Every structure is written in structure tokens, then in C-alpha cells.
Simulated assay, not measured.
Amino acid sequence: MIEKINLNHILFLDIETVPEAEHFHSLDDEMKALWENKTQYQRKDDCSPEEFYDRAGIWAEFGKIVCVSVGYFVVKGDVRNFRVTSFFGDEKKILRDFNNLLNNHFNQAQHILCGHNAKEFDIPFLARRMIINQIPIPNKLNLFGKKPWEIPHLDTLELWKFGDYKHFTSLKLMCKVLGIPSSKGDIDGSQVGHVYYVEKDIDRIVTYCEKDTIAVAQIFLRLRREDLLIDDEIIHV
């Protein structure tokens, strides 16, 4: 039962990704061919590989991470705070810093990672990019040989499915139906690449990512029938 989990033991997270290269024509010929093959069933007949390239950020083989935001509760008696911080900029540094956080502060058996659709996207993406960048995978991301009940991950999308494997609900929709103030600002996931490469506004992406992390925590509280966080309880560090 999620009500029995100590809030202090959960690390909430969200990542933002973009295509690894800004333009399709920047890829070498082999990567162009591999991209065409990888996306052949996702593209409509009249959509060329180049036109489809703005979606490359959703595949770890063709994308990269530009921001990881995390949040964790600090509950002491009647005082409850939620601390939010972000790693952004160079991908290798992001991954190393996130790796250090897990290894040094969230590496015990009781610690759990939680995101929205994190089991399908965020966590595999993080692990794959660590391998690509030759960074050791921390224990919390290394699932090899683990039984399902040994995997220290929670997923608010999975909790909302209640066993309905074909059901997908976006973070924004869950916030709406659960009465949680919208996590979204002035951009959405499809615009992150443009904001990163064209506007070069990483701060805007960080704000967006942190809002999603807070939203995941709010959903988790709502699923436990607990009071939502108020602004005074959220601390950006």
C-alpha cells in the first residue's frame, strides 16, 4: 500500500530531452539511415525522416538529456517541506551529478524513485544515456537480475492504471481530474527542442521540468488522500 511508504524515502523525478543534433543534416549518412529505419512505422507515408527529426528526443539513441529535476520530502513532525533541485547543461555532467545523488543520498534499500511514465521513459532513457556516455549505472537504475518486487520504482501512471495495461493518461490530464493546479507553464514537451536550440533558454526548460516534478509529487499525495503541497512548502535549492 502506497500509504505505508515513508515520504522521506521517495525521490521524485522528471527529465527533459532534445534531439542529440540540432538538425537532421548534421547526422552522418549511417545515422540518417538508422533514423529512417527506426522511425519507419511511426512516420506517416508523406512524412520524410528529416521532417520527423524534431521528435528524435524521445529515443535515447538519437536524443540527449538537457535537464533532470528531482524533488524529495523532508517531513519532521508537523512540518512538511518539498525540496526541488535540477541538473542541467552538459549531458555528461547532468548524468554524473544525478548518479552521485543516487549513490550518496538515495542508495539504501528503502529508497524509491517515482515519476510519471518513468518506467517506460525517464528511467530507461537515463540508463541508456549513461551507458552511451560510459557512466556507471547506479544500483537504483540497474534492473538486471532483479525480480519485479525488487525494483525500487514507482510510477504514477502505473498506479492510475489499476491493472489496465492499455490505458495512458498524461500528467496534465491527471492533474486536471485530480484537482491539482496545472504543472504546465508556457511550453510543452514538443517545444523543448526549439527552446533549447533556437531560443537557447535553458532556464525556461528547467522551470518546466521542475513544475512537472512537483506535479508528480502532488499526484502521489492525492493518491494517498493527503493534503496537496502549498507554495510555502516548496523549496527550490
Results as ranks from 00 to 15, higher is better:
Met1Pro: 06
Ile2Tyr: 07
Glu3Arg: 11
Ile5Leu: 11
Ile5Lys: 11
Asn6Ser: 11
Asn8Lys: 07
Leu11Gln: 02
Phe12Glu: 06
Asp14Trp: 04
Ile15Arg: 04
Ile15Asp: 02
Ile15Phe: 07
Thr17Gln: 14
Pro19Asp: 10
Pro19Cys: 13
Glu20Asp: 11
Phe24His: 08
His25Trp: 12
Ser26Tyr: 06
Ser26Cys: 13
Leu27Trp: 09
Glu30Lys: 13
Met31Phe: 13
Glu36Ile: 10
Thr39Cys: 15
Arg43Trp: 14
Lys44Glu: 14
Ala56Pro: 04
Trp59Leu: 13
Ala60Tyr: 05
Glu61Asn: 08
Val68Asn: 03
Val74Met: 09
Lys76Glu: 08
Lys76Pro: 00
Val79Ala: 08
Arg80Thr: 15
Phe82Leu: 05
Val84Tyr: 00
Thr85Phe: 10
Phe87Trp: 03
Phe88Ser: 15
Gly89Trp: 05
Lys92Ile: 08
Lys93Arg: 15
Lys93Ala: 14
Ile94Leu: 08
Leu95Tyr: 11
Asp97Cys: 12
Asp97Ala: 08
Asn99Arg: 15
Asn103Phe: 05
Asn104Thr: 14
Phe106Pro: 05
Gln108Phe: 02
His111Val: 10
His111Cys: 13
Ile112Pro: 03
Leu113Pro: 09
Cys114Asn: 05
Gly115Thr: 05
Lys119Met: 14
Glu120Asn: 14
Phe121Thr: 03
Phe121Lys: 07
Phe125Gln: 00
Phe125Asn: 04
Ile135Glu: 03
Pro138Thr: 09
Leu143Ala: 11
Lys146Asn: 07
Lys147Met: 12
Trp149Tyr: 14
Pro152Ile: 06
His153Met: 11
Asp155Trp: 10
Asp155Ala: 11
Leu157Trp: 06
Glu158Gln: 12
Leu159Tyr: 12
Leu159Val: 11
Lys161Ser: 04
Leu171Thr: 06
Leu171Met: 10
Cys175Thr: 03
Val177Ile: 14
Val177Lys: 05
Ile180Leu: 01
Ile187Arg: 13
Asp188Phe: 03
Gly193Ala: 15
His194Phe: 13
Tyr196Ala: 02
Tyr197Leu: 08
Glu199Arg: 04
Asp201Trp: 10
Asp201Pro: 06
Val206Gln: 12
Thr207Trp: 06
Thr207Tyr: 06
Glu210Cys: 09
Glu210Ser: 14
Asp212Ala: 05
Thr213Phe: 02
Ile214Glu: 02
Ile214Met: 01
Val216Gln: 01
Ala217Ile: 00
Ala217Lys: 05
Ile219Lys: 00
Arg224Cys: 05
Glu226Met: 12
Asp227Glu: 01
Ile230Gly: 02
Ile230Val: 00
Ile230Leu: 00
Asp231Ser: 04
Glu233Phe: 03
His236Arg: 09
Val237Tyr: 09
